[in-house]
């Protein structure tokens, strides 16, 4: 049992463009903003639509499915992390963007570029629940 959070507290927890995303995680949902002006669904969340710069956003739940685009095993990190740990770069299945997330694997042999992964939401640490990734179990 570890007492380390294994993530860094985001610096934009109170930013208007990110609040619904972080709050969504606390409610168990992985959300992305859709622009109320031009309809663009985009990721990562931010305050203004990258297509038309509109700032009227609604929030939609994503599938949480994705594909491993690349990965690294980190041996060198802030004291908030148990090292080493695996970090994956994940293409979201919706095709709208990528996310960097700790990926739960015990050895590098479990990781293959292109493999299916799921975005999961952690139990709250210091009142904050964040995302991580998990290799998908093979379809039976």
């Amino acid at each position: 049992m570890t007492s380390k959070p294994n993530f860094l507290k985001p610096t934009n927890l109170e930013s208007p463009g990110a609040v619904p995303f972080w709050e969504g995680l606390q409610a168990g949902k992985f959300l992305a903003p859709r622009c109320g002006q031009c309809g663009e669904l985009f990721f990562p969340p931010r305050s203004h639509c990258p297509e038309c710069l509109g700032d009227s956003l609604s929030w939609e739940e994503l599938s949480g499915k994705g594909f491993l685009y690349s990965w690294t095993e980190l041996f060198f990190a802030q004291p908030e992390f148990d090292t080493p740990f695996f970090l994956g770069l994940i293409d979201l299945a919706e095709g709208i963007g990528r996310i960097a997330a700790r990926i739960s694997a015990k050895t590098a042999e479990e990781l293959h570029i292109g493999m299916s992964v799921r975005i999961r939401i952690s139990k709250p640490v210091d009142g904050l629940a964040l995302y991580y990734a998990e290799p998908s179990r093979p379809e039976s």
Binding site: L8, A18, F43, L74, F76, Q78, L87, G97
Partner: peptide, 10 residues
């Protein structure tokens, strides 16, 4: 970018 923050180690 929000997609990089929580795991941006050193």
């Amino acid at each position: 970018p929000t997609a990089l923050q929580p795991y941006a180690a050193y």
